[in-house]
Write a protein that binds this DNA or RNA. Structure first.
Lengths: 347, 347
DNA sequence: ATCCTGGGCGCAACCGGTTGCGGGCCGTCG
DNA sequence: CGACGGCCCGCAACCGGTTGCGCCCAGGAT
């Protein structure tokens, strides 16, 4: 029960292996009749060229790798990554490129590249460490097609696809200030993570320049349960800050659940602003900073595909904006559409 | 800038290629000193064995393929698949197996298998056509590790991971009947799809045996916008059925949005029951038939991993149950505990 | 000192395609 | 009728590891 090989075809046809190979690849120096015979036999016998052998001679595999920065449960529980993958996969599909991925806390990006398992790589800046970055830069020189998504730990020459968080965050803060908020809480990502730190500091500066102050900061783990825990934590403060900023939507979702369980009204008692605008956010009516996540994924894969063809493409920076929904109040001047009396105080 | 090969190591060390190979693979017939020298040089030069060459001689690639049945936007917009992937990826991660996937309306599962690109395959029964099934069965004989997730178009010997939809659907119907519903609407999947037909007929028989009748059936496309469209369609009927059954959660989400936009109250005007219980369902308070989606994915990957080791493993059937949340009313006898609109009450 | 044993290593074939190059056969032209 | 040019195809090397087999040489046994 072995697979059919070129040699098998050649033997039963009484020709050379090379002839069969050429016939199948439309080489002009094969006569139409031979070509026809070969193709027919190949079809009849169900011949499929061995991928490994082909990759060996061609020096490339035609596969693009996607390195997910953490364990599967984390990655796939977060719609951010699903949406990113949606963009990536959709371009890959058009380009006919299969995607190799593995979720892992210890990513072995560059091993894949060096082993020739993949020709290109999309690395999520999110999880790229400075050490990796060095390796990737080295690889990029010698014909590897690499793209980064999200802010890398330090500036790099590698093509990077990113969203400028400033505009969205700034308007979010302006709106909150206009709605009368003064003291905010901030739920940000893991303490050590560069991207989380960056986003947190952007929230902070924007809040400040809008005349507000962040009176409480709590570190979450970017997951929904983590957001719920952060919420319970914040609810114990006295007074409870009346507007909460989040490092991502997943944590905001968790917080929304915790708030509901605690009987706290949103947005009248507490306003909530997320970040990312992943699909469930619209469903839930979460006010959030919109980041074109899917487009980020698409662009990254486009860069890689272009690089595979030898074209060098620069990175791209998208913008962000605030998507106002039902977890924030509008400014008092404009009568609120959904307003509820301020009744029960927590504490 | 070529990659370092075995031959390179051999040359600089003045030994044979085979010696280097054996030294790196801990072959006992290599002296400790040589082995040490080889390993050190390999480390210094950054040697990484070529994946294609290795796959060629070893006759396997160590990769498992996951065939997604439709285009990326469809697949990744549906949390069902993300959750399935979560389960799959999490087991794959433990087993150290990379995953190759491509989303495509015309899946080329078996080509990957025949080309030796992947050693194993997880095919979503969802999108498997009868023709494919035949091919896969043939491949399974000759050492391919295959697992199916979800109901295949016809019974098969291939190990299949599935959930028995009956219990969940039955209790859903019982509860609806107890809450006083008599005439239902059913929003099911694409007209031609076997899985959709099967689920629809199960809804129908359960509804009937609970003393209810399905007065309207509309075919959706399993997407959220499709669900919204279906909802708008149903709202034009007179009278509007007061309980709606869905083929999956995604469509139910869309319907919820459309209902809210139309000012219809859930569950007082219309009760909604989804299917799958994907993560956002809990967030939204959607009553739905729970299917252990993640576990399905895990089990499928376990089957494949086992098969790769030569163990034959049987399929597995999980169960389903109703997850009652806020989009259905409780029976009139028992006063409702938690009732909140999905969102703020409109109107 | 000779024979034997076995550890350590090299030779070469092989996995399955790809490709440069050379050669046979045909037709055509001189 | 011989030579020359094309068209087709086969030979063989190569991609980078893996592995069966055999050779060489050192050390112990006799």
């Amino acid at each position: 029960m072995k697979a059919v090989t070129l040699q098998d075809l050649a033997d039963t046809l009484g020709v050379a292996r090379s002839t069969v190979s050429r016939a199948l690849r439309d080489d002009p120096q094969i006569s139409p009749t031979t070509r026809h015979h070969v193709r027919r036999l190949a079809r009849d016998l169900g011949y499929h060229p061995n991928a490994a052998a082909r990759a060996l001679t061609r020096r490339h595999s035609g596969v693009v790798g996607v390195a997910l920065p953490r364990s599967a449960p984390f990655v796939f529980a977060n719609p951010y990554f699903s949406t990113l993958l949606e963009g990536i996969a959709s371009i890959a599909e058009d380009a006919g490129v299969p995607i190799l991925f593995s979720a892992s806390p210890t990513p072995d990006y560059e091993r894949w590249l060096r082993e020739g398992r993949v020709d290109g790589l999309i690395a999520l800046g999110y999880g790229v460490r400075t050490l990796d970055l060095e390796q990737l830069e080295g690889l990029a020189g010698r014909s590897a097609a690499i793209a980064l998504v999200g802010a890398p730990p330090r500036p790099t020459e590698l093509p990077t696809v990113i969203a400028d968080e400033a505009p969205g965050i700034a308007t979010a803060c302006d709106r909150l200030a206009a709605a009368g908020h003064r003291e905010l809480a901030l739920v940000t990502g893991p303490e050590g993570a560069a991207y989380a730190r960056a986003r947190a500091s952007m929230w902070r500066t924007s809040a400040t320049s809008a005349g507000m102050t962040i009176v409480a900061t709590v570190h979450g783990d970017d997951t929904q349960p983590g957001g719920a825990a952060a919420a319970r934590h914040l609810l114990e403060r006295d007074p409870v800050p009346d507007a909460w900023l989040f490092g991502n939507d997943a944590m905001a979702f968790g917080a929304l659940g915790a708030l509901e369980a605690a009987g706290v009204r949103v947005p009248s008692d507490v306003a909530v602003v997320g970040f990312d605008d992943v699909p469930p956010a619209a469903l839930l009516g979460l006010t959030t900073v919109h980041q074109p996540v899917r487009a980020l994924g698409e662009q990254a894969m486009r860069l890689v595909v272009a690089a595979l063809r030898g074209d060098t493409a620069p990175g791209h920076t998208f913008s962000t904006h605030l998507e106002e929904r039902r977890t924030t109040r509008s400014a008092p001047s404009t009568p609120a559409v959904s307003r509820h009396g301020v009744t029960e105080d927590v504490t």
